[in-house]
Design a protein around this nucleic acid. Structure first.
Length: 673
DNA sequence: AAAACCATAAACAAGT
DNA sequence: AACTTGTTTATGGTTT
């Protein structure tokens, strides 16, 4: 009694972990405005639209990085540089895009290594992944292309305006021009930011001569004062350059992308020196000696590999000089170093993300393969998905036993409804938000059945209440009765999620059993078993869809925000939260990501729902909806018997006639975990 | 705003 | 003594 007074340490554990763990450092919604105070130039309206998108993208990244930077800065320089720094920093932050990007890491090398180690890829997977990456790069390149075009257009417009205005003096331009120039600047800045980001993610290779980026990188490590100064120079020079450029020739501006920030070397344009054949005009001054290691990852193909440098050298000596000279130990270099760390980090994340994506895709495809049949033969599907589960004695009851629940709710319509939940309905999202509460209770079984594999492997919390699940467990049993332990086992067997935090959910199960009238305890020879009183169960107030809102919320929060973010970004953010949960068979990580994807959909899926009044399947889970969505995408998939990827097969999933016994044993081990 | 639900945590008791 | 099984109570969050 007394001794227990100390609150259990466990208490805060699960809840907090689930809920708040990852979200702190990640970006927060707002503050977009500050980044792009675009002036409206009617002429550029169209562009705006396009640019806006680009901005969004860039902004997201920036915000994220800004945050972490500030955070870190404050952590690193609590006292010393603080006065100056914070000062400058603020001004930096004010400059819409300029800086933001220098963000020292947040990941320790060890963490990274850990990540790496945990990601075990088969060669095949790796290959696929690589392909994916390539595709990504392609995308990025296209984006770059797009930027270029934008730039050109802007230049043209600028030119026109100038001509009209008739004045070439940058200082006395019309308000319009000013505005326009501003905009131009911003656009360029954002572009650079974005490009830089891409670069850092290793998605974009900077080519020699593309000084803009390097320069930008340089900025990263600079002392604020210096930086600001430089920024001014650059921007000014840039503007002028633009003017000159515009007025004199628009012909060979082809790839002005670089010139925007690096007016100095118009000659060195990226398209020129792909192979590093160029002589770099980079300022190379005095020669400092600093013994440098022989192995130089920083030197390759005659090019200085220092991030953002790209200087070209004929011989190694020159390079060494350059290295000592340009990349000596100073603020800038260290900053760049940090940046590089971040690059690595980014890559890690990217890799993780894509890997997960890949596996999710595979998982998805696999699942999908079983889906179509569902559409065709709702009932069979269950056994289908359940595959091995050709339970001899219990086959009929097990598949869709819940029928009993509501005579009013015919099975077929039900399953049909399920399949109906397709992209269509999804898109129709509309009016009603959330759940289709009303309606009776649900046959969650179809959902469970259909998503069985998913739940078995993915560390995703099933969107059902404990009560529903317990009921399901009991109903699935041959005799419609289970001991507590058997119920436990069912949970662990059917849901990866319940293979952890046993204490928590088991308590919840017990609690539910006791609490709800619908669960009746029956004394037995061997002890006691639990049964379900359907009537009571039905009595309960119309349940909401997937049970606990808390659950859903939980799920969603654990991943970041769903709805509004672009898929890409969401992904890129989601990865921050990737749990490294390693479980059964294949890839729990994958499944996690699958879950992510699904969750994305969930937001939508859940919304539309109520559309169908006739259906009486409130228990539908978003997940199942998701499933069908996927099915929808590829309606015809006739002979996909086993599914293309046998990956998903699980140990559990083998034939299990007397599965009860089997699992009880198996799970027994797990339980000890 | 209140009621109904749900999830969690936790104290306790009785049995093994 | 340590667990397991059940029962209750309390708290906090969400939906209707």
């Amino acid at each position: 009694m007394m001794q227990d007074s100390t609150t259990e340490t466990v208490s805060n554990g699960p809840a907090n972990q689930n809920g708040g763990a990852n979200m702190d450092g990640v970006l927060q919604e707002g503050t977009p405005k500050s980044a792009t105070p675009l002036v409206d130039v009617t002429a550029a309206d169209l562009l705006h639209l396009q640019q806006h998108q680009a901005f969004q993208v860039a902004r997201q990244i920036l915000l994220q990085q800004q945050q972490s930077q500030v955070q870190l800065q404050t952590r690193l320089n609590p006292g010393r540089k603080s006065p100056k720094l914070s000062d400058k920093q603020q001004s930096q932050l004010q400059v819409p895009v300029s800086v933001a990007m220098m963000t020292p890491q947040v990941i320790t090398p060890q963490q990274m290594q850990q990540i790496l180690q945990q990601q075990v890829l088969s060669p095949q997977q790796l290959q696929v992944l690589l392909q994916q990456q390539q595709a990504l790069m392609l995308q990025q390149q296209q984006l770059q292309e797009f930027y270029k075009k934008q730039q050109e257009q802007l230049h043209l417009q600028l030119l026109q305006q100038q001509q009209h205005a008739g004045s070439k003096q940058s200082k006395e331009v019309s308000p319009q021009q000013l505005a326009f120039q501003q905009q131009l600047l911003q656009v360029q800045q954002v572009q650079q930011q974005h490009l830089l980001n891409l670069q850092r993610q290793g998605l974009l290779t900077i080519q020699p001569g593309q000084t803009s980026l390097p320069l930008h990188s340089l900025t990263q490590g600079m002392i604020p004062a210096e930086l600001q100064q430089l920024w001014k120079e650059v921007t000014n020079a840039h503007v002028k350059e633009e003017h000159n450029n515009g007025s004199s020739n628009n012909g060979h501006r082809g790839l002005d992308l670089s010139s925007s920030a690096a007016p100095k070397n118009p000659v060195l344009n990226q398209h020129a020196a792909t192979n590093g054949q160029y002589m770099s005009h980079k300022r190379d001054g005095s020669v400092l000696e600093e013994p440098s290691p022989h192995s130089h990852p920083l030197y390759g193909h005659g090019v200085c590999k220092w991030p953002g440098c790209e200087a070209v050298f004929d011989d190694f000596q020159s390079f060494l000089k350059h290295l000592n000279n340009e990349h000596a130990l100073d603020d800038r270099s260290t900053a760049q170093c940090r940046v590089q760390m971040q690059v690595v980090q980014q890559l890690e994340l990217q890799l993780t993300k894509d890997k997960e994506r890949l596996q999710a895709m595979m998982t998805h495809l696999h699942v999908k393969s079983t889906e179509p049949k569902a559409t065709l033969q709702p009932l069979n599907l269950v056994s289908n998905v359940t595959l091995s589960k050709s339970a001899p004695e219990a086959s009929p009851p097990l598949s869709l036993p819940q029928t009993p629940t509501t005579p009013t709710a015919p099975l077929t319509p039900l399953s049909q409804t399920h399949s109906v939940i397709t992209a269509n309905s999804l898109h129709s999202v509309g009016p009603m938000r959330r759940r289709y509460s009303e309606k009776y209770n649900m046959p969650i079984s179809p959902d469970i059945s259909q998503n069985k594999e998913f739940y078995m492997n993915a560390d995703v919390r099933p969107p059902f209440t404990y009560a529903s699940l317990i009921r399901q467990a009991i109903l699935e049993s041959p005799e419609k009765q289970l001991t507590l332990n058997e119920i436990y086992n069912w949970f662990t067997r059917m849901f990866a999620y319940f293979r952890r935090n046993a204490a928590t959910w088991k308590n919840a199960v017990r609690h539910n059993l006791s609490l709800h009238k619908c669960f009746v305890r029956v004394e037995n020879v061997k002890g006691a078993v639990w049964t379900v009183d359907e009537i009571e169960f039905q009595k309960r107030r119309p349940q909401k869809i997937s049970g606990s809102p808390a659950l859903v919320k939980n799920i969603q929060t654990s991943l970041g925000y769903g709805p509004t973010l672009s898929a890409a970004f969401q992904a890129s953010m989601a990865e921050n939260n990737i749990p490294l949960y390693t479980t059964a068979s294949i890839g729990s990580p994958t499944l996690n990501s699958l879950a992510n994807a699904i969750r994305e959909e969930m937001n939508g899926a859940m919304d539309h729902e109520n559309s169908n009044g006739s259906d009486s399947s409130p228990g539908r889970s978003p997940l199942s909806a998701m499933h069908h969505i996927s099915v929808k995408e590829e309606p015809l998939d006739p002979e996909d018997h086993d599914g293309p990827l046998s990956l998903v097969t699980t140990a559990n999933h083998s034939p299990d006639f007397d599965h009860h016994r089997d699992y009880d044993d198996d799970v027994g081990h797990n339980d000890m975990l």
